[in-house]
């Protein structure tokens, strides 16, 4: 009887110590998870910022200005456009058009 009690006491102690350890682990992992999640959010925000930034570098006004001033391009008009329809293109390959 006594022996059983001793064994059970040891088991109880071991289990308690294990519980302490598990809850410690749980908290540590939770903290890590939380950190990762907030990092994810920050990265999301940063991604959004960069996307916006990228677009503000590619606005029609900037593209137009660069094309006109740096690359000396001009706006296309129907007079300098060769229109090719899909059906025609299938029948005979276009000789090439400049835009």
């Amino acid at each position: 009887m006594t022996r059983l009690n001793v064994v059970m006491l040891i088991m109880l102690l071991a289990s308690s110590i294990y519980l302490v350890r598990v809850s410690y682990d749980a908290r540590r992992l939770f903290a890590e998870l939380d950190k990762a999640q907030s990092e994810e959010r920050l990265l999301d925000i940063e991604f959004e910022r960069l996307k916006t930034e990228k677009q503000s570098q590619a606005t029609p006004s900037r593209v137009e200005k660069t094309a006109r001033e740096k690359l000396a391009m001009r706006t296309a008009n129907p007079a300098i456009t060769q229109y090719v329809t899909y059906a025609k293109a299938a029948a005979s390959t276009p000789t090439g058009g400049t835009r």
Partner: peptide
């Protein structure tokens, strides 16, 4: 009008004297 229709991909409905340099 000219720029918007072009952007929307509407083909011209009037004949325009082409100024394209021939590739021939």
């Amino acid at each position: 009008v000219q720029q918007t229709l072009r952007t929307l991909g509407v083909p011209p409905d009037l004949d325009v004297r082409p100024q394209i340099v021939s590739n021939e």
